[in-house]
């Protein structure tokens, strides 16, 4: 492999990193929104979100991405590849994140709520000042774990023709006629990316254990 091939490989890695990064940020935030909506137990909406979570957790990413990218135009929405990819990854990871947030909220101690109400906090102040900071810390390890799952699932975006870190190996081997080195190099780059997340998770876990009461 020459410098050119490495350049292509790094470009692929960048594509994987930014698409996953945007989906992670959107997914963590939307997951929180979905979890809060489900916590409010609004009739009909609650069942709808429950069905969405069950469906999104059962649908393979590849299928979801093909579905969004191919059926967008028939609904009159023209999506470019990156948008479709981000939409699919976000829809997928939001469902998992929503469950992580929800279980953290459900396990939150009731005494603190009672104490907050007793000193006259409004529900919003209680949520923002007391509940949220603690649940962020306790659910961080699980959220980071889900992030590494997202990066591991991200090669699915190759199916609609995005040249990510997996698909770029085909490009390189089309020139060099030797597919093995680029695939191994791509594997090493993935390991570096996911290793970074796992390392972050370990730190998050240690922090969570220290702050857990």
């Amino acid at each position: 492999m020459d410098g050119n091939a490495w350049g292509l490989l790094l470009q692929g890695a960048w594509t994987t990193a930014w698409i996953s990064g945007v989906s992670i940020l959107l997914g963590v935030f939307l997951g929180l929104v979905v979890a809060l909506l489900r916590l409010a137990k609004i009739p009909f909406l609650d069942q709808l979100l429950g069905a969405y979570i069950s469906l999104a957790r059962a649908t393979p990413l590849v299928t979801l991405i093909l579905f969004i990218f191919l059926s967008g135009p028939t609904l009159g929405i023209n999506l470019n590849r990156s948008t479709a990819a981000i939409m699919a990854l976000t829809l997928n990871t939001t469902a998992f994140n929503a469950e992580i947030w929800r279980s953290a909220f459900n396990n939150f101690s009731k005494e603190q709520r009672e104490a907050a109400m007793a000193v006259g906090m409004t529900p919003w102040v209680y949520f923002r000042r007391i509940m949220l900071p603690q649940t962020v810390i306790t659910s961080l390890p699980n959220l980071v774990n889900e992030m590494s799952f997202l990066v591991k699932g991200s090669p699915a975006i190759a199916v609609i023709g995005i040249v990510d870190l997996t698909r770029v190996t085909n490009r390189i081997s089309a020139v060099t006629y030797d597919p093995l080195p680029p695939i191994l190099a791509a594997g090493a780059l993935y390991m570096a990316m996911i290793g970074l997340l796992v390392w972050g998770q370990r730190i998050a876990e240690r922090k969570a254990n220290r702050l857990a009461m």
């Binding site: 591991k152 090669p155 699915a156 190759a158 997996t166 190996t169 093995l180 695939i183 290793g195």
Partner: peptide, 21 residues
């Protein structure tokens, strides 16, 4: 190693990579 790799890259390795050895 398996826990840090995406599944697809392993499938690529077996399907596209191994024929060259």
């Amino acid at each position: 190693a398996m826990r840090m790799l995406p599944f697809l890259i392993l499938a690529y390795l077996f399907y596209y990579g191994l024929p060259s050895v």
